[in-house]
C-alpha cells in the first residue's frame, strides 16, 4: 500500500515539470488566444469586448470557407492518396529487393531539403515562361495546353497539392519500420499454408499496420493544417484566394493588424485539428494492440 502511494507521489512529482511547461507555453497562450477573440483588436492596443462578432464575421467570410475547403481537401488527399501511397512504397521496400536501401534514401530525400528551397524549385517547374511543365508540353506539340499553373484559378490548388502529395518518403519509412517489426513466424506460417505474397500483405501486414497508419494519417493531416511556408512562397493564397488555407489566411490577417480576427481563425484551425485528431484516433482505434 505504502509502495503504491510512493509510486503515485513519484509519478506526480515527475509529471509536474512537464505539466507546468505545457501549461505555461501551450495551455495559457491557447486560453489567451481564445479570450482575445471576444475583443476588438485591430490596432496595436486591444479594444473593447465585442462578444461573438468575430465568429459571426468568420461564418460570413467567403475566404474562410475557401480556406476550410482547401484544408479539408488536403486532409482527404492525405488520407486517400498520400498515406496509401506511402503504404504501397513501404510494402514494396519491405520485400528487400536489390537496392531497396538506396531507394528508401531517395524517397526520403525531399524531407531533408528545406521547404523554402522546395517551394522555389516547384515555382520554377510551374513557371509560365521557362518552367519544366510548359517546356515539355511545347516540346511534344501540346503548347496549347501551356498555362500559368500556379496562378490559373482552375489549376492553382491541384498544382499546390501536386507539390506535396508524392513526398511520401517519411511516412513510408515509418510504416516500413513497423512492417519490419512484424514477427517473421506469421509470414512463414502463412507461406506453409500456401498464401501468396499479395495475400500475406493484405491479410497479415496491412491489418497489423492499423496503429501506425492511423498515426501517419493524423501526422500528415495535422502537418497539412500547419503547412505555411511553401504556400506563402509559391502563391500566398492567390489567385482569388484559390490556394488559401486557414494557417495562411490567419497570417495575412495578422499582417493587416486584424489580431482578434486572426485569433478567431486560429481557434477554428485548432477546432478543426482537434476534431480530426479525435475522429482519427477513434477510427483507427489508436492505442489498442493487435498482438
Amino acid at each position: 500500500m505504502k509502495t503504491n502511494q510512493e509510486q503515485r507521489r513519484f509519478i506526480v512529482l515527475a509529471l509536474i515539470p512537464a505539466v507546468v511547461l505545457f501549461g505555461t507555453f501551450y495551455i495559457l497562450p491557447m486560453l489567451g488566444l481564445i479570450a482575445t477573440t471576444f475583443f476588438e483588436w485591430n490596432t496595436i492596443k486591444m479594444g473593447g469586448f465585442i462578444g461573438f462578432d468575430n465568429y459571426l464575421k468568420m461564418f460570413q467570410d467567403n475566404v474562410f470557407y475557401i480556406a476550410l475547403q482547401n484544408n479539408l481537401s488536403w486532409s482527404l488527399v492525405a488520407m486517400f492518396i498520400h498515406i496509401p501511397l506511402a503504404l504501397m512504397v513501404a510494402l514494396l521496400l519491405s520485400k528487400k529487393f536489390r537496392g531497396w536501401k538506396v531507394l528508401r534514401t531517395i524517397y526520403f530525400l525531399p524531407h531533408v531539403i528545406s521547404v523554402t528551397a522546395f517551394a522555389v524549385i516547384w515555382m520554377n517547374v510551374f513557371n509560365p515562361s521557362f518552367g519544366l511543365i510548359n517546356s515539355v508540353l511545347k516540346m511534344i506539340g501540346l503548347g496549347a495546353m501551356c498555362r500559368n499553373w500556379l496562378y490559373d484559378q482552375a489549376t492553382a490548388w491541384p498544382a499546390i497539392l501536386l507539390t506535396w502529395v508524392f513526398h511520401v518518403g517519411l511516412y513510408a519509412v515509418i510504416i516500413l519500420g513497423e512492417i519490419l517489426s512484424i514477427p517473421e513466424e506469421l509470414f512463414e506460417s502463412a507461406e506453409i499454408d500456401g498464401a501468396s505474397g499479395i495475400k500475406q500483405s493484405f491479410h497479415i501486414t496491412i491489418p497489423l499496420l492499423r496503429n501506425i497508419t492511423g498515426t501517419c494519417v493524423i501526422l500528415t493531416v495535422t502537418g497539412g493544417l500547419r503547412y505555411f511556408e511553401g504556400l506563402y512562397i509559391m502563391t500566398n493564397g492567390a489567385p482569388n484566394y484559390r490556394t488559401e488555407t486557414l494557417a495562411l489566411y490567419l497570417y495575412q490577417k495578422i499582417q493587416l493588424i486584424q489580431y482578434s480576427y486572426a485569433n478567431t481563425l486560429g481557434v477554428a484551425l485548432l477546432a478543426f485539428g482537434l476534431l480530426f485528431v479525435i475522429t482519427g484516433m477513434k477510427l483507427f482505434k489508436l492505442g489498442k494492440s493487435d498482438w
Partner: peptide
C-alpha cells in the same frame, strides 16, 4: 485600405487572364 492592397495580389491574376 490596407486590405485592398492585400487583395490586389489575389485579384490581379484573374484580371490578367481575363477570368475577371
Amino acid at each position: 485600405k490596407p486590405a485592398v492592397i492585400d487583395a490586389l495580389a489575389q485579384l490581379l491574376p484573374g484580371l490578367a487572364d481575363k477570368s475577371l
